[in-house]
Design a protein around this nucleic acid. Structure first.
Lengths: 305, 305
DNA sequence: GGCTGCCTTCCGTTCACCGGAAGCAAAGGA
DNA sequence: TCCTTTGCTTCCGGTGAACGGAAGGCAGCC
C-alpha cells in the first residue's frame, strides 16, 4: 500500500461526492447551524460553499442570498465575496447581484476532462449532429453522477432536460448506463446498492434489472433508454475510450420516443452513434479504435445496418 | 457618488486586471520572498494564485511546480491543494500531477457572459460555420483583453492561435477592435494610452491609426484585420448586442489572407458575418436587432444615460 | 414616521493558518 | 549496495488573519 504511482484506482476511491446538503432553501425548519456540527470551518471551505450557492437555477444571487445559501454570517460572506469579485471569480452586475465571473470560467476551461475532451470531440459531434438533426450529448462520469460536457440541440428536436455542466444520476440515462457499465466494479456495486430513484413509470428501479441491462450494454457496446426520464424521449449511447483504452466518456443521441408517436426507429441510430463514439475514441488515441479491424466486440456485424 | 445602483460603469471601473506577475519560472534569480512585499497574504489570495498556476501551456502540474508558480512554501501549497482536490477544484491523476477538476469547470459553466452567451449563440454560429467552412469565433471583452468564448474550427481552415478561454489584446484582432470601438470612452482612452504591441509587420501600433480604425468600425459596423497577428490570416468581425443594446460580444470569421494567396475575397464575408451577429443579438433580445428595419446605425452611440 | 430588508464598516477576540523542520519514498548514479 | 537528489507528506508551536456581532446607512413600502 501507500504506493502512490501504480495500480489502485485512486480517483475512484474518492468518496461518492457529498452532493450539496439539502441544497438551498433549508426547508427543514429545525435549527440551522450547529445541528450535526458538520461545518467545514476552513476559509477554503467557506469559499467553496459560496460557489456552491450558484447553480443552474440560481445564476444571480444577492449578498444576503449567498450568505443564506452558504450558511455564513453576512459580514463574513461580504468579505469573502469581495475577494472573489476582486479576482474575477464573481462579477457584480449593475443590479447589485453577483454572478459567476469570466475568470472562473476561464480556469475551468483548462479542465482536461471537460474542455480537453470537448475540443477533440467537437468535429465528430457536429458531423453526427448534422446527420441526425436531433440532440447530441457528450458526458463523463463523476462519482455516482454524469456531467454533461457538451450538448448540441436542434431547435426542433425533442426537448431534453440536460444542460452543459449539469448533473444527473447514472441509472436512468443512456450515457449513465454506458458509463456505469464500464465503471470499476466498486462503483457499480455501490450504485446498485443505492436506492434507484424513479423519474417516470419506465425508469429502472430494480437493481437486478439494472444489472442485466449493464451486462447487455457491455455485450452490445450500446445503451438504449426509452422514456426513463421523460416519456417522450429515447436516447442511444455508446462508450468513448481514451488512451489507455478505458471508457472515459459516453456519447448519446436523443430522439422522440417511438412509443409516443415519434417517427424514428431507434435501431437505425445505433450504427451512427457507435461510429461517432469510435471516431472520438480514435481522436483520443484509444488503441482498440486505432486498429481498423477491431469491432467493439461481439455483436459486431450482426446488427443489420 | 456611492450610489450603487444606477449610472456609473462600475464593472468598467475595475482595474485593468493585473495579469499574472512575470508568469511562472521566476527567471530572475534574486531573492524570492519578501522583495517588493507585494504579497496578498489572504488565504483566498493564495488559493487564487494556485489556480493561476494553471494555464493553456500548463494543464498538469506537480505539487512542487504549483508551489513554485504560486510562490508558496511547499507545505502550504500541499495543504491548500489538498483542500482544492478534496472539493474537486483540482484532480490528481495517476501520475501524481494535478489538473483542473471537473467541479471547477462545472461552476465556471454558470458564468452568464460565457456559457450563457454561448448557448444562445451556438445555433447561429453553426449555421455560419456551415456556410463558410472556416474558423468562426465568439469573444467578449474583459478589461483590456478579449476572451474567446467559443470557437469552431474547420480542419482545413487556416490555423489560428486562439483557444476557448484564451486571452488576447484588443488592438490586433478584429473582435478586439469591435469590442474596443464600442467600449466606454474611458476604456478606449486607456488602451490608446498604452503601448500597442506588434505581432507582425502589419499590426497597428500607432494610437492615431487605431483611433481612425475604431471610428471606421463604428461607422461600418464591421472590423477587418489582415495579418495583424499572423500574416496568413484575415478576420472579419461584427458586434453582438445585448438586452440593453450595448455591445456585449463580437463575432468573427477567420480566413486565409488574400495577400498570401488565399482564395476568398473578404468583402463577400461581411454580409454573412453581420447577419449572424445580428441574429445573435436578436436571440439575446437586443432592441435594435428586433426592429426589422434597423440598420446597425451609423455612429449611433453616444454616452447614453 | 416607522418598519423591513439589504448592504457596508468597524473592531476586539481567538483560533485556524502558517511554514520550518524532519521524516519518507522513489529514482538515479557510482 | 550505498549515497544523493528530488518530491511528497506529516508535525507542531506561535501569531496575525479571519471571524462575526453590532451599529450605521440606504431604499422601498405600509
Amino acid at each position: 500500500m501507500s504506493s502512490t504511482t501504480d495500480a489502485e484506482p485512486s480517483p475512484e476511491a474518492r468518496a461518492p461526492r457529498p452532493r450539496g446538503r439539502a441544497r438551498r432553501g433549508l426547508p427543514e425548519g429545525s435549527g440551522l447551524s450547529s445541528s450535526s456540527g458538520r461545518r467545514a470551518p476552513s476559509v477554503t471551505g467557506r469559499v467553496f460553499s459560496i460557489l456552491e450557492a450558484f447553480d443552474g437555477d440560481h445564476r444571480a444571487l444577492t449578498l444576503t442570498e449567498i450568505a443564506r445559501a452558504a450558511a455564513l454570517p453576512v459580514s463574513t460572506a461580504h468579505r469573502l465575496v469581495g475577494e472573489l469579485a476582486a479576482w474575477g471569480a464573481l462579477e457584480r452586475g449593475p443590479d447589485g447581484a453577483y454572478r459567476i465571473g469570466l475568470r472562473l470560467w476561464e480556469v475551468g476551461s483548462l479542465a482536461p476532462r471537460s474542455v480537453g475532451l470537448r475540443e477533440r470531440a467537437m468535429p465528430i459531434l457536429e458531423d453526427l449532429y448534422e446527420a441526425v438533426r436531433q440532440n447530441v450529448q457528450l458526458a463523463v462520469r463523476d462519482g455516482h453522477e454524469i456531467v454533461y460536457v457538451e450538448r448540441l440541440a436542434h431547435p426542433e428536436a425533442v426537448r431534453v432536460f440536460s444542460r452543459v455542466g449539469g448533473r444527473w444520476p447514472l441509472h436512468p440515462t443512456a450515457v449513465g448506463q454506458v458509463l456505469l457499465a464500464y465503471a470499476p466494479p466498486v462503483v457499480q456495486e455501490s450504485v446498485l446498492a443505492e436506492r434507484l430513484a424513479a423519474y417516470t413509470s419506465r425508469t429502472i428501479t430494480d437493481p437486478a434489472v439494472l444489472r442485466r441491462v449493464l451486462a447487455a450494454v457491455r455485450r452490445d457496446g450500446v445503451a438504449v433508454c426509452d422514456g426513463m426520464i421523460d416519456l417522450a424521449a429515447l436516447s442511444v449511447a455508446a462508450p468513448v475510450r481514451g488512451e489507455d483504452d478505458t471508457v472515459v466518456a459516453a456519447l448519446s443521441v436523443v430522439v422522440p420516443s417511438p412509443s409516443e408517436g415519434g417517427g424514428i426507429e431507434p435501431r437505425t441510430l445505433v450504427p451512427a452513434v457507435r461510429a461517432a463514439a469510435r471516431g472520438i475514441s480514435r481522436a483520443l488515441g484509444a488503441p482498440t479504435a486505432l486498429r481498423s479491424d477491431a469491432v467493439p466486440r461481439a455483436e459486431g456485424r450482426r446488427a443489420e445496418s
